[in-house]
Design a binder for these strands. Sequence first.
DNA 1: CAGGAAAACTGCGTGCGCGCAAGATTGCGC
DNA 2: GCGCAATCTTGCGCGCACGCAGTTTTCCTG
Lengths: 212, 212
Amino acid sequence: MTTPPPGLRERKKQATREALREAALRLAVERGPDQVRVEDIAEAAGVSPRTYNNYFASREQAIVSAVTADREARIAAAVAAGPADVRLADAVTDAVVEQYTDTGEHEHRALLLITTRPALRDAFLDSTAGIEPPLAAVLAERLADAEPHTARVLAAGVAAAVRIALEGWLQPAGNLGGGGLVVPTGALPDQLRATLAPLAPAFDAAERRPAG
Amino acid sequence: MTTPPPGLRERKKQATREALREAALRLAVERGPDQVRVEDIAEAAGVSPRTYNNYFASREQAIVSAVTADREARIAAAVAAGPADVRLADAVTDAVVEQYTDTGEHEHRALLLITTRPALRDAFLDSTAGIEPPLAAVLAERLADAEPHTARVLAAGVAAAVRIALEGWLQPAGNLGGGGLVVPTGALPDQLRATLAPLAPAFDAAERRPAG
DNA sequence: CAGGAAAACTGCGTGCGCGCAAGATTGCGC
DNA sequence: GCGCAATCTTGCGCGCACGCAGTTTTCCTG
């Protein structure tokens, strides 16, 4: 059930998706994100503009997707691969931190681009929502005995926490409304651990008390 | 700081928003949601189509907004109004359940409309994201000593939980992927309590251990 | 009460998201 | 091998989102 031979059909589909990703990022870097039209991306990838948004809903999604790749799936896989005797909260936190601690030069350059344009920034933050479905599936296995929705709620919580961490990380030193003093915006791994920490007790409880 | 006299400008703005809300809902009910164009809504509200999307990003948002009103603000207000000696988790849960347990005949009719059309259903579910900001502000007061992001993460978790509850509630008896048996889709208050329950330990921990 | 700045509304033009129906391509069973 | 069913791709067209520049309205200050 895990990997029935992919099939040529699906492979071509992924190839097209990859071509669009690559074309979108390349053109965005070359001429600036605002100077790239969907028509250009489609042409560079060798498909029609109409086909383009069978794969991506917006222009920004394609560019961000090139950076994001399928980080969501990798997070879920990392959690699934972890041994069953460690705290679920730790497994999830480590998986998330690891997958967001990129070392790629290629990625770093693109991230600089993303932080510049608000539209790309938003699309980047929205991409965190994609974490929920695969993570929920993995959590459902670990928490098989728990209430049905628990896995989804926890996965959604993680996605939200990641989003908040990224928001904080992308903000240079913006002032927040209210009298709160602003934290000096540490490194991304620290931000991620900080936002995921409040959810740990929920994971522990779900793990410990299967069926509430 | 709470209520500096609203000012005529802001009041007219809210009046226009309300007119658009009302017009959108009325037309949607009268002739069916798909037979309503932005131009029609704008005309009924006495503004130009261009002005329309200074208030709402999409056609569906306006219709949903008429049902949602400002439920987010009421939830936050209910939490803030609650006594300080009850568990924060309970206060939040009760506030959410109460605000989603509508009794309005007007609302009920509109909800029937929303459940029908997928686009409206999606917009309705998306509206839950609006819970986060006001709720986070209220939680930040209660958890003043905690780590800065904790309130936001918890608020986002609540928003996600509500969304999941609504998703489950809107599904008649759809079959889920995997071998899970489907819960008979109870009443909305039960669904909300079920999805909020897993977050309770996180609230307790945040309340108990202020600064981690 | 008058002047000026700020902000909201409007018209116009362009590009995008997406439904629809027809054509092309793949995969499967006989 | 061969045809059939499923699905992906494409052209077409409509409605919407949004930037831009100009006009009108509102608000504040002297």
